[in-house]
């Protein structure tokens, strides 16, 4: 296997102590992990488990207290990182945040999408071409000249994604990007994220609370007390329902149903992540007995 796209070694982070007495507790504690290029990783964990801190460390918005991070084979925690190195890191590690309103800069959609490439000093013609192409990637081309504040939450968030895509990143980190959206907006954004990963091969790290969304990833990392508690495919992670519940998380309804059916004595062998898989398992067993 090739070198991992992201490699983290013994990463710790603690906030500077403040008046409220918080921050003495490390947010991340000796965390190590690797993320493959082109993979889709969901990061789960309750509030305060260090998820968002991890995201900000990955593109040097924060610097770690100790430990090393390698991105694309380059150590970004190296003291010798120049300003240009930081820019090229941020170009490659896009970030989409929770509140769509707080990350759009310009008053016109296409001007906002152009913001990143403009900062990178890309020639005008190419910015134009990129803006059109990424807006159509997220299905928002027809809104190019609209004002963001008149769009729905899901649409605004897709503009934010387009703005990051326009820098041609290798990886995008979504920091609870669906938390403030309604079900329709959430679906729009999830569809866009999946397309980026499957069709463009962009590495996706998605921080979320929604188990149904995490179920769509290739791999789930569960953070707890600043470290990795569980790491595996959605199927493997969801098997640990009691452990997940003990740290304030859940599994999708259908998965939980299958677990309870198993406990009640039904033999249901196989993955039970999606609704279809669960239906298939139940059908097989019921039909067998008939």
């Amino acid at each position: 296997m090739s070198n991992p796209f992201i490699k983290i070694e013994g990463l710790s982070y603690r906030y500077d102590e403040d008046s409220s007495g918080m921050g003495k507790h490390p947010v991340l504690n000796d965390l190590s992990m690797e993320i493959e290029e082109g993979s889709f990783v969901a990061v789960l964990g309750h509030n305060g488990s260090g998820k968002s801190t991890l995201a900000k460390l990955l593109n040097m918005i924060l610097t770690p207290t100790s430990g090393k991070i390698f991105v694309d084979g380059k150590e970004i925690t190296d003291e010798a990182m120049t300003d240009e190195d930081v820019l090229s890191l941020r170009k490659n590690m896009g970030m989409v945040f929770q509140n769509p309103d707080n990350q759009l800069v310009a008053t016109i959609v296409e001007d906002d999408v152009a913001f990143g490439p403009e900062n990178l000093g890309i020639p005008s013609d190419e910015i134009r071409a990129r803006v059109n192409s990424v807006l159509s990637d997220v299905g928002m081309l027809e809104y190019a000249t609209h004002e963001p504040h008149r769009l729905s939450g899901g649409q605004k968030q897709r503009i934010a994604i387009a703005g990051v895509l326009a820098m041609l990143p290798k990886c995008i980190v979504f920091d609870e990007s669906t938390a403030m959206l309604d079900p329709i907006g959430r679906k729009e954004v999830m569809d866009a994220i999946l397309r980026l990963n499957r069709e463009k091969g962009i590495t996706v790290i998605m921080i979320t609370h929604y188990m149904e969304e995490a179920a769509l990833a290739d791999r789930i990392l569960v953070l707890h007390d600043g470290n990795v508690l569980l790491d595996g495919t959605p199927s493997e992670v969801f098997e640990q329902e009691p452990l997940l519940k003990s740290c304030g998380l859940n599994v999708p309804q259908c998965t939980s149903l299958i677990h309870q059916l198993r406990d009640a004595g039904m033999s249901l062998d196989g993955d039970c992540v999606s609704i279809e898989q669960c239906a298939e398992l139940i059908l097989q067993t019921l039909n067998k007995e008939r």
């Binding site: 941020r90 896009g94 000093g121």
Partner: peptide, 18 residues
């Protein structure tokens, strides 16, 4: 933070779409 993430670093070396 979002602007920093989108590589904003002042007006130097900046281009424009229009």
């Amino acid at each position: 933070t979002a602007m920093e993430c989108r590589c904003y670093h002042g007006g130097e070396g900046r281009t424009r779409m229009h």
